[in-house]
Design a protein around this nucleic acid. Sequence first.
DNA 1: GTGCTTCCTG
DNA 2: CAGGAAGCAC
Length: 737
Amino acid sequence: MPDHDSTALLSRQTKRRRVDIGVKRTVGTASAFFAKARATFFSTMNPQGSEQDVEYSVVQHADGEKSNVLRKLLKRANSYEDAMMPFPGATIISQLLKNNMNKNGGTEPSFQASGLSSTGSEVHQEDICSNSSRDSPPECLSPFGRPTMSQFDMDRLCDEHLRAKRARVENIIRGMSHSPSVALRGNENEREMAPQSVSPRESYRENKRKQKLPQQQQQSFQQLVSARKEQKREERRQLKQQLEDMQKQLRQLQEKFYQIYDSTDSENDEDGNLSEDSMRSEILDARAQDSVGRSDNEMCELDPGQFIDRARALIREQEMAENKPKREGNNKERDHGPNSLQPEGKHLAETLKQELNTAMSQVVDTVVKVFSAKPSRQLPQVFPPLQIPQARFAVNGENHNFHTANQRLQCFGDVIIPNPLDTFGNVQMPSSTDQTEALPLVVRKNSSDQSASGPPTGGHHQPLHQSPLSTTGFTTSTFRHPFPLPLMAYPFQSPLGAPSGSFSGKDRTSPESLDLTRETTSLRTKMSSHHLGHHPCSPVHAPSTAEGLSLSLIKSECGDLQDMSEISPYSGSAMQEGLSPNHLKKAKLMFFYTRYPSSNMLKTYFSDVKFNRCITSQLIKWFSNFREFYYIQMEKYARQAINDGVTSTEELSITRDCELYRALNMHYNKANDFEQVPERFLEVAQITLREFFNAIIAGKDVDPSWKKAIYKVICKLDSEVPEIFKSPNCLQELLHE
DNA sequence: GTGCTTCCTG
DNA sequence: CAGGAAGCAC
């Protein structure tokens, strides 16, 4: 036995000493990482804007000349949108809120009151009708008022009111015609129209007359009318909001698109001395003029389909341009000046792609939902200006490019797309809502929230039909597990006895074996890879074989009350309740990039998993195990090198064909089907190896906590995990490329 | 207490 | 790979 191998034994014999001191991943490590990434992204998107500015709205940094440029660029959009532009300080959300409040606090209450009283409110109603021309100008001036729409609204509402009023008057006259004084009253009625002043007697009569009216009839009639109007108004308001939001999203996309377009342009032809802003302004100006100069059919904005196509083409170009330098330079060069744009650019491109997909799919989904829910609504009559965008979206709703877009929603990571639709409870986003909610950590940066708030989904929409075997994560299976799936987070590990009855797998040939873990896990791996390959989107079939086994092996301590409370009978979201072998595979691949992922990071990257305490610790445990293996290998090879007579760290290098690397790759990338093991990993491994080597050479290994210093070094060497790992389907994309 | 980490064991 | 123990930080 070589001398250095004895230390392990020694350390086992001696009292265990803690070496995790100082290695602890403070929250800052991870959060700083994310903050950096965010900052990187945002600074790319908006060089002079603050992070917050961009975070909430891409549109709203339209201050100064930029806003003018943007306005020009987007003035093809509907006019009322422009009215919202001059408020750079306000976010979209707040604008919408204000808008809503304005409407609610402004005209609405008076309308609502109309059905309640027959006297005062009637006067009020009349005021509104007759004064509509007086009222509308301030509303036109109001930045939130959307003058065009308000004018339309008011006109139409006045129409309705006038009709109602006429009917009411007719009703009154009809009612009075039965009274003996009908002629006199009629004359008085005519005289009232005259501009002469109304005498107290007449006003008294009018009052009296009103009181004489059959109140019930009038009230019910009024209530009916006003209720229907209320309803219509509400629907109109909702639709208006939806349309606004969609247009806003589109505008955001356009803006980002032009930024990218712009940056690629300037990368190509500017020499760097020009002011970027002036360049941008000119380009945007020219572009705006260009688009304005086009035919009206080229219209208000790019057709969404074209828009996406052009964006994709640009992104492809950009990626191709980036790929060459990216070969030799790794992300390590992020810190160095000239190359610093490349990883950011890639990041940007990735994010933009995802954003485009998601935002467009949201828009399409919303419109489709609106139209399918209210197929008979005659929207065009109500909102002529908005008819065109809607029709275009509806057409593009057939675009198959968007089918997978929702699946990518979770890839957003640290990019927060304000979803104005979520601001209004009455508008529910289809399917994507759940996924958005499933990403609370993106929004809530307070790490303490994660445990307290636990289920960010608020305990609803927990899918019971998702199996850990399902790697697509977004199947639409109608199958429901008979047992709560959180308990399957620890499948096969608890020898609670033989599977009960029908759940005993047929191919379980050795039930006496208590160590089911490896066997079944590998079995599940095979199964899921089979699913992966052939039925990527098919629902998980019957809980047979290994999966069925897992149902019977319940880890009771995971089913504590808190976790159980998260279980909801509702299905429909795409969150998995357990970690699948593919998650393990993904985690191993992620280890090539990060050795010390924070739990928040894990939640971000395993966004298709519904996290609870068990899941989190399991994932953390995985990485702990990975590290353990990693460090063991390092120590082993360091000692081996020392025994082999290596005296200088210079002789220690790690290449892709060295033994150590092969061992590591075999562990984390068993099938070797991930061909993009980053160069950075080799560097980190080499650093680690040399650290171990030096420490052993220096005799530090006599100290039981000698590894602590090494851990401290290595934990700082994590690199950014590619965005693609955030995708629940990243394995397909990574391994089949 | 809880979360995270390492160490040890199976 | 997971369970458990132990230590540390918050």
